Structures are given as structure tokens and as C-alpha cells.
Amino acid sequence: AVAHAYVFGLDLVKVDKDDTTRVLGGAGFEVSRDGQVLRFTKLSDGVYRLAVPGDAGVLSEVFSHTDGTLSLQGVEARALSLRESTAPSGYFKVPAFMVEVLPVWNTDASEVTLASYRTHGTSLAFVSQDGRAVMVADPAHSLANLPYTGGVGILILLVLAILFLVFAVRPYYLSHRAETTANILE
């Protein structure tokens, strides 16, 4: 009997949220599985292999290459949690998200023919159109990308201020009008 043991990889590409053709390098990620932080060995810029006992230079944080790519090799086919620890300069960090590495088996289920991905947790992490990589889109520091926190409270204060002005100005206007009318009658 022959048994095949498979290890998989995760290919990730960092892009600008507003222009997905613009790649971003230098993003740092902490990768975990089942609550345990995974350790990696750096093979080259943007390419890491899951560390095995005896590896030197083991890292708990991995960084994307200047061309925006990050390749993690030697991971199991199941869910990985990624948390962006370092955003590229001029960009916000994306919220933590999960990537599932899913094997696709041949018709008789004897061999894996392809690995696909599924993402959860944020709309800023999604599978590329060709299905070969997970795209992570960082929002740039700009007014358009600021969160709308407190928007409802500001709206309520604005409505109250307008109502106050209407009720404060109306008596003044009526008294001014009455005074003008009184002056005409004299």
C-alpha cells in the first residue's frame, strides 16, 4: 500500500484597497492555528516554511516581499488565522481573518490535484479571481477610509442644534416684528 502525505502552502498578495493592481510590500503577519502561534523559517524574502524542530532563526512574524507576495509553505490543509501586525507605511491594518486551505482530490480520491482557499472574517481578505492566491486589501490613510464611529450621535446633536435654533430665533423674530409694527402705529 502506498500512502501520500501532503503539505500545502498559502500564497498571499497585499494590495491597495482602492487600487488592487498596486501591490504593497512590508506587511507583517502573525499566523496561528487553533489558538497556537505558528513559527516559520525564512527561505527568502516573502517566502517562509513552517518550522520543524532543529531549525535556526525561527520567526513568529512573517513579512510580505516588496512585490506584495507572501508564501507560507508546509502548512496543513485546514484553517489558519492571520493577524496583520505591521501595515505598510501609509495604510491601516486589516482586521484579523481566517484562510482555509482546501485540497481538491481527483475523481477516485487517491491524489490531491489542487489546493483552493476560502476566507472568513473580513471583506478585505478575498480569494483572487484565478483562485491561486488570497488577496489582502489594506485601506490607505485618507478621509474616505476613516471609520464612521459616532456618526449617529453627531446626527442627533445636529438635529437638536437645528431645533434649538428654530425655537430660539422664532421668539426673537416675533418680538422684533411686534416692535416694528408698534413703531409704525405710533
Rank of each mutant, 00 (worst) to 15 (best):
G25W: 05
L43A: 09
I184Q: 12
V47R: 00
G25M: 06
A3I: 14
T180M: 14
P53K: 13
A161P: 02
Y48P: 02
A109R: 09
L157N: 08
I156L: 07
Y148H: 09
V75N: 01
D34V: 06
A137K: 00
H176T: 04
S71D: 07
P139W: 00
D130W: 11
K17E: 14
A115L: 03
S89H: 09
H176Y: 11
S89W: 00
D19C: 01
P147L: 14
S123G: 09
G131P: 10
A137C: 07
L102C: 05
G121L: 04
H4M: 11
Q129I: 07
M98V: 15
A115D: 08
S44E: 11
D19R: 05
G28H: 13
W105Q: 15
G54A: 14
H176A: 14
E186W: 05
G131N: 13
V136W: 00
V15L: 05
V127N: 01
V37I: 15
I156C: 03
A178G: 03
A56Y: 04
T107D: 03
A56H: 06
R177E: 12
R49V: 13
E111P: 01
A182N: 10
T66W: 06
T122P: 07
Y91H: 01
L163V: 13
G25H: 04
F126N: 10
T107R: 07
H141K: 10
S116M: 13
F97H: 01
L157G: 08
G57Y: 04
R83L: 13
I162Q: 08
